Simulated assay, not measured.
Amino acid sequence: MSINRILGSSLVRNSFVYVVCDGINKAIPFLLLPFITYYLTPGDYGVVTNFNVYVQILSVFCFLCTAGALPVMFNKLDKSEIRSYVSNMMLLNTVVTFVCLIINMFILRWIDRGLNISPTFQMYAIVVVWFTGITNINMLLWRCEERPVAFGVYQISQSAVNAATTVVFVIILLLGWQGRVYSMMCSVIVFGIISLYILYRRGYL
């Protein structure tokens, strides 16, 4: 196979788009970091880190296991079956998230003492996880369908909104670590709703 043919293949083109978009996506928070560090103390960063850790723990239970199976099933099922599979994934993720919410109610104080996350922000973490699961499903479908441009634009847009709301809440309104959490919530909820609409319009819900 010639070099030109390799470079012209969809795999190479898609990989190039993913790499470029991923680079831009990671550059946005990196460029914002010097400004944020001026307004957030090391203690603030610690609380934000704990919040992110709790979100990641919840994500393992709420959607990562089911989402990991989607790329495998995508090539085994036809279009109608994929739609049914995605709908069932959404339902299962919602049920599991609700179960996590109930369990969280019984261990609020332990989590507060262990991670220094108040009960209110523990509830915020569960909201973030549910909306993140929706966006994750939408992004996985774009990957499976080999739509790197849509994937990249969506990813960069979410990072840009996250950065813009961080400027508003942390730098302008001076809300400290709470502002950083609010900015994450805003971007996750907005793009989760957009993902819900996209999935609905495409017949997955």
Rank of each mutant, 00 (worst) to 15 (best):
M89W: 05
C65K: 11
E146P: 01
G68F: 09
Y85A: 09
L115S: 02
V86C: 04
F35L: 15
T94V: 11
T94C: 10
A125R: 02
Y45S: 06
D44I: 00
L92I: 11
G114H: 04
F61T: 11
A67W: 03
I126P: 03
I82F: 00
N52Q: 13
M105D: 07
L92Y: 15
N136M: 14
V128P: 00
F106N: 06
V128Y: 08
N104V: 01
M89C: 14
F63M: 09
L141T: 02
M89L: 09
W142N: 13
N50G: 08
V96Y: 01
G133H: 12
V129D: 01
V127Q: 03
W142H: 12
T94Q: 03
T94M: 11
P119S: 01
F51A: 00
V60Q: 14
W130G: 00
S59G: 13
T41S: 15
F61G: 11
Y38W: 07
Y39N: 12
I126V: 14
L92V: 11
I103Y: 10
V86T: 04
E146K: 11
V53F: 04
W130N: 00
T37M: 06
F106Q: 10
N116Y: 08
T120V: 14
F131L: 07
P34V: 05
N88M: 07
L140V: 14
Y54C: 03
F106W: 12
I36W: 00
C65W: 12
Y54V: 06
C65I: 14
F35N: 05
I82T: 06
P119L: 01
L140P: 04
L91P: 02
Q122V: 02
C62Q: 13
F121A: 00
V127S: 05
L140Y: 09
R113A: 06
Y39D: 13
T94R: 04
F98M: 14
I82D: 03
G68V: 05
R109C: 01
V55F: 06
Q56E: 12
F74P: 03
F51P: 01
Q122P: 06
V72W: 07
N52L: 14
W142R: 13
Y38R: 15
V60H: 07
C62Y: 06
M90A: 10
I57V: 13
C144Y: 02
V128L: 08
G43W: 00
C65D: 08
L64V: 15
V60P: 08
N136T: 15
P71I: 09
S87Q: 08
V99K: 08
F74H: 15
N88H: 10
F35D: 00
L141S: 02
G133D: 09
T41R: 07
L58P: 05
V72T: 11
Y38K: 15
V48C: 02
F131A: 05
Y38P: 00
G68P: 07
Y45R: 13
Y54P: 04
I102K: 04
E145Y: 02
A69M: 11
W130Y: 13
L101F: 15
L115Y: 09
D44S: 01
I134Q: 09
F106A: 12
V53K: 03
D112V: 00
